[in-house]
Amino acid sequence: MKKKKNREFNKITEKTTDEELVAKTLKNPEIYALLVERYEKKLLRYIMRILSGTKEDAEDILQDVFLSAYKNLNDFDQDLKFSSWIYRIAHNKVISHFRKVTARPKTMTYEGDSQLLNILASEEDIAKSMEKRHDAAEVRDVLDELDEKYREALVLKFLEEKDYKEISDILEKPMGTVATLINRAKKQFKEKVEAKQKTEKG
């Protein structure tokens, strides 16, 4: 029996798709560990970026996401990418967490968040209004000030590098709505950066 399980593991390579892993997990639960390994870092980073909480909170949510995904594996829609589906579960778990926690503690910064400003600056005119380099913590401060829906839209588009279809599947909104959300989010982000600049100058 153990040999049979090992053979199944050995057949799995990096080229094995997530969707194939889902099918194999339904036959052998231990294969789920491979899906967890593929997504644990990405999802933890995503949760930390959109969550107002501590790292421990993010890790608790991450475990909850994986267990919930496992219980609902038969609900996985083959029309979606597995990544969109599991990001959606993470998004819903974070929303539930927001509902439970009323206090909003200072959030974590995540290495690499500073790129958001560079990405947006290349699209917008933000760079012109910036006189100094902004680090991840400063970007995080601006993100914190955004409405939750805008913050998540920016994180998904520019930091998680998801396309419109994937964001639509994660947030469960039509693609037109996603485009509007991202435009408004960029506008609000720019306004907050400029307001921050003025305060610093003053």
Binding site: L26, P29, E30, Y32, A33, L34, V36, E37, E40, E59, L62, Q63, F66, L67, Y70, K71, N72, L73, N74, D75
Partner: peptide, 26 residues
């Protein structure tokens, strides 16, 4: 296995968690 994947698989086994059946979602 990583620490998290190990913990998830342990949880699944210890708590005897199974995916909900397909008919439930249908």
């Amino acid at each position: 296995m990583t620490e998290i994947s190990d913990k998830i698989i342990k949880d699944i086994k210890e708590k005897n968690i199974h995916p909900k059946p397909r008919w439930f979602f249908a």
